[in-house]
Design a protein around this nucleic acid. Structure first.
Length: 1039
RNA sequence: GGGCGCGUAGCUCAGCGGUAGAGCACUACGUUGACAUCGUAGUGGUCACAGGUUCGAUCCCUGUCGCGCCCA
């Protein structure tokens, strides 16, 4: 049965993929024939994710490397999996619950909600896996990993080691002092009410305002404010009783701890060290804050003076830390103005004491709510309006003159208005929640990255890990060398709960053992329950993989306490509130019964979970079974290549480097190939809001997975963004069809008949010898390209070979050969060449090639499916230089004749006789060996040796001149033009060559081979020019 | 403002010391033993600009001008 005219991708792809899976073709170690391993860890897509172009690109490249190595016999593992995507998943499930009118997260409670998440995961979490299969990804799906596997509450089928790995690393790093808890400024998402990472923050330019306010100097003081130009001449001078501050966030003024100016700023030198007043809040409780110096303020920007609000701005935070300025938190977890704590008057009074030198602790400062009573509980935007109105009303806004012209009367009036500049400001938004992110001072867990970063830097510096392209290594270094502590806690439920338990701090300041007798009396008990340390969470905590393991640690920390508390039984309760109640009840009971055995010391677990990146940072070892010493871990770790997008070099790559080195002492992979972004055809980033997203699955439906893969591969120039257009994909779909039809031609001509085993033949005919050499060249080019991760070079080499050599020439040459004595060897050669095309193209176009592999199978069948077929290792030894030279000549001659015919307007179908005017021996041999092919392709019906007839056009080849008699047909003028043009081009080239060769400096200093090459080119050019001149003079006779 | 890139044929891009290539598009012709998702031939480039290094620069260096991305 003859083959179809085209490959039916939609029908064949699922069938072929299923066959691969059935055969276990992608299993770790499948087709291994040597000891070396090759392992790639998939960058785990979000479990909520669906395949987008970036995934398609990323996974195509991985699949090429994996298939290539597997065919070469490496013990290959492509490890797939998904990460649990804390926020995204929680968001998706909450949305689902809302849509199906089920109780929400808080109503369900933690455990029940997590049950829902697992349910969702079971139903929808496999989507991206199915999509990757459509792309043809040859992952070992039997090993599919998940960063939440093995977590408490995970249903059957979700068992695994990942939870243990994550917890173990946390516990170990904590024990080494590399993880700590602290109050730091973090990105806070007020919608999800959790800390988020920088990666989850998008900075967008939005329309904003810059207000200018006057902070009056304390006690009515004044100073001479003076501006100077570059030469030191005074350009402006006035006596001021205030310092001018610009801000885009007036509501945060309530939490100001200082005003800072640059130490070099002479304008404010007179008032540095003095106090100024925050011009907002009840008049009688206005706070005074110091004017300090710091390098952060830019004297050229605004007034040069900056308000310092350490709890609400990252820059201010650094300044406040340097200067020991208190950081007053103004907002709650929903980013509304705080509504807790002491009344404003009391809080402000205490803050004032601090500003004037009273000692303070971080914890105390955090309890002080400096939001005026009437602003408490307001949305921050509403608070902003009121603050601005208040300051303006009081005349403390900086003003400027605005002149208005009445349109009707033409009268002008000058008005003094507050100075509010409308200007674009960069504002952070949560990439999931889309709400404005608030820098927030909260208690969080941090990895002390500064202590584990060095090995990660060293490993790339000394080449144990290579980052490609090279410039991305710079990004890596830059980020690691300026690394910030890594906030790893998230106020979410979906994730690995932090393995830390807290106890009430019974030894905290505020508790006194009055008698010093080590025994508790009632008064002391009472104090414990009130203002004492119990209200300070976090001072006592212990970390271990499970509750049982922290009990001993708590027992030790209770040992110092008075009897009988020191012997209290340690029990786990839900949270701090429960702990306080439990302890109180226990103490009250003790008070009555005096039975110390009933005393309990309640502890509760940290409710927070770990950042998803903390888990995915352990991806390389976690997926291989660590901390268990599995055979896979021993075999495949360290892994080989990580293929990933440039946007997560530091977030993920750097963290994997740091964590794997910290845990195992080894780099996780020896090469990181960083690819660029897939954009739309206009170069715009694909985004849902722009509507320019190309869905890879749509494209696969339309053009087939192979076309999509080939396109992405051909465009994968290292470090350069891809501008993807559908037209391009269609073009590569056509390429697949071309290969398909070349095979179809072969099939129709009996190439695959007769149960011929496909081995490399040793043909006699030049054409067959030549194409074998071309095949070898291509194999070398493809291997070299892939070894250097030059995917586009590999794709282009394949394209040029299959289309440009095999289809354009070899198949055409074969047609006449099938009628001659070389028919059999030509069939054998073509069978082999097409086989090689399939093998070499398979990593890029797996489906179509596998299909053709089956279609062309000899009667005895194939030894293995293409996916497991051995990759060839032949090389330049197969290149027959003589055949090469001869075929170059033949192709050149055919080109010449066709070109001349076309330009002379000779009808395509018309066969012409040709005259051999002169030829050397090589040219004669080349002709006679290939005459039927030349005649066929150039539409020549005979060759006779004779002087060039009148009215003929001249064909100049290397070593020979031919003529096509076209008397009556030929347009003398056109032929003259054609030849003159050719001659001019030649002359131009030769002019350059002569100029060079006549320059003694060139001959002296250029490499010998370059000089030699120039001479040869010149000689050849002169020969050809000679022939053309002869032809031209003949034409002149005629004309 | 800092960093990293990029300006090569109409478009998308390779090349990166020896006088420019591909694919697509375009034009003309064309159903020749597979392929119209095709074939044949062709048009099209002071390699952004200005200096410098060199026997020689699209390629290396410096500067200018445009554009993009990342970080502030």
């Amino acid at each position: 049965m003859p083959m179809e005219k085209t490959f039916n991708a939609a029908e064949a792809e699922p069938r072929i993929y299923a066959a691969w899976e059935r055969a276990g073709a992608f299993a770790a170690g499948a087709n291994a024939s040597r000891d070396e391993t090759f392992c790639i860890m998939i960058p785990p897509p979000n479990v909520t994710g669906s395949l987008h172009m970036g995934h398609a690109f990323n996974n195509t490249l991985q699949d090429i490397l994996v298939r290539w190595h597997r065919m070469r016999g490496f013990d290959t593992l492509w490890q797939p999996g998904q990460d649990h995507a804390g926020i995204a998943t929680q968001m998706v499930v909450e949305r689902e619950l809302a849509r199906s009118q089920q109780p929400g997260r808080r109503e369900l409670g933690r455990e029940a909600f997590l049950g829902k998440v697992w349910e969702w995961k079971a139903q929808s979490g496999g989507r991206i896996v199915e999509q990757l299969k459509r792309l043809g990804a040859s992952c070992d799906w039997s090993r599919n990993a998940f960063t939440m596997s093995g977590a408490p509450g995970a249903p059957e089928g979700e068992d695994g080691n990942f939870h243990d790995a994550v917890i173990k690393v946390f516990v170990d790093l904590h024990a080494k002092g590399l993880i700590y808890r602290g109050k730091r400024l973090v990105n806070w998402d007020p919608h999800f009410e959790t800390a988020i990472s920088d990666l989850e923050v998008e900075n967008l330019e939005v329309a904003g305002h810059m207000w200018h306010f006057k902070y009056p100097l304390a006690g009515g003081e004044t100073y001479l404010y003076r501006e100077k130009d570059a030469d030191g001449n005074v350009t402006f001078e006035e006596r001021r009783d205030y310092i001018s501050i610009a801000t885009t966030r007036p509501e945060t003024m309530l939490g100001d701890g200082a005003v800072a100016v640059h130490p070099s700023d002479e304008r404010y030198a007179p008032i540095v060290g003095k106090l100024c007043e925050i011009p907002v809040g009840p008049k009688e409780h206005r706070r005074l804050i110091p004017i300090i110096t710091d390098d952060y303020p830019d004297p050229a920007f605004g007034s040069g003076a900056v308000k310092i609000t350490g709890a609400h701005d990252f820059n201010d935070y650094q300044v406040a830390r340097r200067a020991g300025i208190p950081m007053y938190r103004l907002m709650d977890t929903k980013a509304q103005m705080r509504d807790d704590g002491l009344p404003y008057a009391e809080a402000a009074a205490r803050a004032q004491e601090i500003a004037t030198g009273s000692a303070f602790t971080e914890a105390e400062v955090d309890t002080l709510n400096l939001v005026p009573d009437e602003l408490r509980g307001l949305d921050r935007m509403e608070a902003r309006k009121r603050v601005v109105a208040q300051i303006t009303g009081e005349g403390l806004a900086v003003t400027h003159q605005v002149v208005r012209t009445d349109k009707e009367t033409g009268e002008t009036t000058a008005e003094t208005l507050p100075l509010v500049e409308a200007k674009p400001i960069m504002q952070p938004f949560g990439d999931r929640s889309k709400v404005v992110i608030e820098p927030m001072l909260t208690d969080q867990w941090f990895v002390d990255t500064a202590k584990i970063v060095q090995p990660a830097i060293d490993a790339v510096r000394d080449g144990r890990t290579t980052i490609l392209p090279e410039r991305d290594a710079k990004v890596y270094f830059h980020w690691l060398e300026n690394i910030e502590p890594w906030c790893i806690s998230r106020q979410l439920w979906w994730g690995h709960q932090i393995p830390v338990w807290y106890g009430l701090d019974l030894g905290a300041e505020g508790f006194r053992d009055d008698e010093g007798d080590g025994d508790l009396d009632e008064v002391e008990l009472g104090r414990l329950l009130n203002e004492g340390g119990m209200l300070h969470r976090g001072d006592v905590h212990h970390c271990a993989a499970e509750f049982a393991a922290v009990v001993a640690a708590f027992r030790d920390s209770l040992a110092d306490l008075p009897v009988p508390l020191s012997g209290a039984r340690i029990v786990e309760v839900a949270d701090k509130q429960a702990a306080i109640e439990t302890l109180a009840a226990s103490l009250a009971q003790y008070n009555i019964s005096q039975d110390p055995t009933g005393l309990v010391y309640p502890v509760w677990r940290d409710p927070d979970v770990l950042d998803t990146w903390f888990s995915s940072g352990l991806w390389p070892i976690g997926t291989l079974g660590w901390p268990e010493p599995t055979p896979e871990l021993a075999r495949y770790f360290p892994t080989d290549v990580l293929v990933t997008g440039f946007d997560i070099i530091f977030f993920w790559v750097a963290r994997m480097m740091m964590m794997q080195l910290a845990v195992t002492g080894e780099v996780p992979f020896h090469t990181v190939y960083v690819h660029a972004l897939v954009r739309d055809e206009k170069g715009k980033k694909m985004s849902k809001s722009l509507g320019n997203v190309l869905d890879p699955l749509d494209l696969i439906d339309q053009y087939g997975a192979d076309a999509v893969r080939f396109t992405l591969t051909a465009m994968a120039a290292m470090g350069r963004d891809l501008k993807l257009s559908e037209q391009r994909i269609a073009g590569y779909r056509n390429f697949g069809t071309k290969l398909w039809n070349a095979t179809r031609f072969a099939e129709m001509n009996g190439v695959f008949d007769g149960g011929r085993a496909v081995t490399r033949p040793a043909p006699a005919h030049t054409v067959n010898r030549w194409i074998i050499g071309e095949t070898a060249r291509t194999r070398v080019a493809v291997d070299e390209a892939l070894a250097q991760y030059r995917f586009n070079d590999a794709a282009n080499a394949l394209y040029a070979f299959v289309w440009g050599k095999v289809c354009d020439w070899y198949v055409e040459f074969a047609k006449p050969l099938f009628d001659g004595p070389e028919a059999e060897e030509t069939r054998a050669t073509m069978a082999w060449v097409l086989d090689q095309c399939l093998i070499l193209c398979h990593p890029v176009m797996p489906f179509l090639t596998e299909e053709l592999w089956a279609v062309t199978a000899p009667a005895a069948g194939r030894a293995k499916p293409l996916v497991h077929t051995d990759w060839p290792d032949y090389g330049p030894d197969l290149i027959d230089a003589a055949a090469d030279r001869e075929m170059t000549w033949v192709i050149g001659l055919i080109d010449e004749i066709r070109s001349a015919r076309a330009q002379m307007g000779v009808p395509v179908g018309l066969k012409l006789p040709m005259v051999l005017v002169e030829a050397d021996a090589a040219a004669r041999d080349a002709w006679s060996a290939n005459a039927p092919m030349i005649q066929r392709l150039a539409r020549i019906n005979s060759l006779t040796e004779a002087p060039a007839p009148k009215g003929s056009i001249t064909i100049a080849a290397e070593g020979a001149t031919y003529a096509l008699p076209l008397e009556g047909v030929i347009d003398v003028a056109a032929e003259k033009t054609r030849l003159t043009k050719a001659l001019e081009k030649l002359e131009k080239d030769m002019g350059g060559l002569r100029g060079r060769l006549n320059n003694p400096k060139f001959v002296d200093s250029a490499p010998d081979e370059v000089v030699e090459e120039s001479r040869e080119k010149l000689a050849l050019g002169e020969e050809e020019a000679g022939r053309i001149r002869v032809a031209l003079s003949r034409l002149a006779d005629l004309g």
